[in-house]
Design a protein around this nucleic acid. Sequence first.
DNA 1: AGGATTATGTAATCAAGATTACAGAAAGGA
DNA 2: TCCTTTCTGTAATCTTGATTACATAATCCT
Lengths: 203, 203
Amino acid sequence: MAVRGRPRSFDRDAALAHAMEVFWAKGYEATQLAELMAAMGINPPSFYAAFGSKEKIFLEAVDLYLATVGAGSMKALAETANARAAIEAMLLASVDIALASPTSGGCMVSLALVNCQEQNKPLRIHMQELRRSTTSFIVQRLRRGVEEDDLPKEIDVERLASYFATLMQGLSLQAQDGAERDDLVGTVAMAMGVLEYAENRQP
Amino acid sequence: MAVRGRPRSFDRDAALAHAMEVFWAKGYEATQLAELMAAMGINPPSFYAAFGSKEKIFLEAVDLYLATVGAGSMKALAETANARAAIEAMLLASVDIALASPTSGGCMVSLALVNCQEQNKPLRIHMQELRRSTTSFIVQRLRRGVEEDDLPKEIDVERLASYFATLMQGLSLQAQDGAERDDLVGTVAMAMGVLEYAENRQP
DNA sequence: AGGATTATGTAATCAAGATTACAGAAAGGA
DNA sequence: TCCTTTCTGTAATCTTGATTACATAATCCT
């Protein structure tokens, strides 16, 4: 049976993509619905009918971010052959993400919900879980690297993973502060020295 | 000539210290004046008479933070003899800071004004400048390290400095996500590997 | 064509949060 | 003691921002 009633006059997916850009650029709380709706090209009733609330559309925007923008770094991590190269590819991908949009600096998952009000704690916790899962992906990739003899058995994969996760979050803050690509890539190169060191120290 | 009029009934410095704690824990925008005044133990007219506005008291709170809490890491950087040890001491001090208050996670300068509204951009830029000056302190310390033969001449001090600055900011985000001291200290240890590597590679 | 259904635009509403008004209180100085 | 000055508590005010009411428009189904 076909859809009843007046059809919606805008493209929901396109509107969501615009909303994601705004949330990415400004974070959750600093984004005002008026601006969001202007960017989406729709009015309040259309917004609420299609997306429910600010909180709900934010969750959708995060999902979209993860599926599109954010997917690059996890894909690089999983699909690059050597563990060391995989980590480097992940970091460089996250540099690309951090510099991707001219208006936004840094990763949306890292930065969209820092310092929030009490009422938004649940959202904050959701983002925190996403960040944790990133770290655990890194752990898994390093473990695989050890299994595949890319890395010495002695290394502490948990510690290394939280080191790289910390660095990625730092890159986001740097990008938000207007760091140039060269700066970020340079930092990644320095950071990789740690793994190089671990490899060379291999007995 | 003595002070005219009714004397103020609260300790301005103590009130400011309380305000700093709240800003530190919640960031600038998420801090509501009602909560701030409650923490300070004063009412609106006293607040405005003594501090002027939310923006002005925030700037005072940041100054106080830098003079007290934040001073530790820069002091460690400047006063530790060997350059490598100085960097490590700075990072460990910033771990202490990040874990200092049970309510707050991370450095106030790094996190208090991420993702702000257009109207607060000036404050954000102020914080950005403070962060930049931290990085340039690190640069200077590394230069001194090269001069004092703590570090090889070949190292790129700018790049190293932004690497460590990035890492420190990452530590703040990790702390805000509830990282334990062991995690942060472990990350610092990993991070220092980069300098160890640079030193050992010295021709 | 006419009724049911769902979307749209304009204009409220409603709450929260920063800031100020006003009357009373506590000091110093004449 | 009385006047001036500056602070304090209670209670507005004023703005901003999220959400909803209502009348109208566009579609499907009969």
